[in-house]
Amino acid sequence: MSYLPYLEKDNKVEDDCLAIRQELDSLLDGKLSIMKHKDDIIAKVEKLGKIAAKAADASHRKSLTIYDLRELLQKKYNEYDDLWHKAAERSGRINELTHEVSTLQAKADVQAEFIGLFKKCEPQKFAEVKQLQEHIQAQREEEQIQQSATRKKKSWGLE
């Protein structure tokens, strides 16, 4: 894109070259015309040489631009391939996790059904089990608090 302003100049160079060529054709009609317009012909040829140098420079800029664009395109293709492979890997992992979630959900459904039946058939036993579970959970929380306090003391160098 940085070479776009040169495109208009390149078109002007081509137009100038064509105009000078037409002028030279008319000046080179015959031997007498060549002798008569010798200085004009030399000036036109010199001007044509300058225009040819500009055209060569423009051609070089275009080839650099095309090379740069090809290089950028190859880089983008490589990035696309990398992203495609990552997406494929993640898709496989998503499928694995989806299957695992389905399996765990089925197990949870079976357990929920069992708990519902247990609660319905043995409400007294269910209440006892629930109390026991709450007691065990409270003990675990208390142990975690004690372990956390011990770790803090050790990290502070107090124990």
Score class of each variant (00 low, 15 high):
3 Y>G: 04
3 Y>P: 00
4 L>K: 12
7 L>G: 08
8 E>G: 13
10 D>A: 15
10 D>Q: 10
11 N>H: 09
11 N>I: 02
12 K>G: 07
13 V>A: 15
14 E>C: 09
14 E>M: 14
14 E>S: 07
16 D>K: 13
16 D>P: 03
17 C>I: 04
17 C>W: 11
18 L>E: 08
18 L>S: 12
19 A>H: 14
20 I>Q: 02
22 Q>S: 14
22 Q>V: 03
22 Q>P: 01
23 E>D: 11
23 E>L: 03
24 L>D: 05
25 D>E: 11
27 L>E: 00
27 L>G: 02
28 L>I: 01
31 K>T: 03
33 S>M: 02
34 I>T: 02
34 I>D: 01
35 M>T: 02
36 K>N: 00
36 K>H: 08
37 H>M: 03
42 I>H: 04
42 I>M: 03
43 A>D: 10
44 K>R: 05
44 K>Y: 06
45 V>R: 06
45 V>M: 06
47 K>Y: 05
48 L>K: 02
49 G>T: 05
51 I>W: 00
52 A>L: 03
52 A>V: 01
53 A>H: 11
56 A>M: 10
56 A>L: 13
56 A>I: 04
58 A>T: 01
62 K>T: 00
63 S>D: 14
65 T>D: 11
67 Y>N: 15
67 Y>E: 09
69 L>Y: 06
70 R>K: 11
71 E>Q: 15
72 L>Q: 15
73 L>C: 10
73 L>D: 11
73 L>Q: 13
73 L>P: 02
74 Q>S: 08
75 K>W: 11
77 Y>V: 01
78 N>I: 00
81 D>R: 06
81 D>H: 05
81 D>P: 00
83 L>E: 11
84 W>T: 03
84 W>H: 11
85 H>D: 09
86 K>A: 03
87 A>V: 05
88 A>D: 10
89 E>F: 12
89 E>L: 01
91 S>L: 01
91 S>A: 09
93 R>V: 02
93 R>E: 10
95 N>W: 01
96 E>F: 05
96 E>K: 07
100 E>F: 04
101 V>S: 09
102 S>D: 15
103 T>K: 09
103 T>N: 08
103 T>W: 04
104 L>A: 06
105 Q>I: 00
105 Q>L: 15
106 A>S: 10
107 K>F: 00
107 K>H: 12
108 A>V: 01
109 D>I: 02
110 V>F: 14
111 Q>R: 13
111 Q>T: 14
111 Q>I: 14
113 E>F: 08
113 E>D: 11
116 G>D: 14
118 F>L: 03
119 K>R: 15
119 K>A: 10
120 K>C: 04
121 C>N: 12
122 E>P: 01
124 Q>A: 14
126 F>H: 09
127 A>R: 11
127 A>C: 02
128 E>F: 08
128 E>Q: 15
129 V>T: 02
131 Q>D: 06
132 L>K: 08
132 L>H: 08
132 L>F: 07
133 Q>E: 08
133 Q>L: 01
136 I>M: 07
138 A>Y: 04
138 A>L: 06
139 Q>S: 05
139 Q>V: 00
139 Q>K: 07
142 E>C: 04
143 E>C: 05
144 Q>V: 00
148 S>Q: 11
149 A>K: 06
150 T>C: 04
151 R>C: 12
152 K>Q: 08
152 K>S: 12
156 W>R: 13
158 L>C: 05
159 E>H: 12
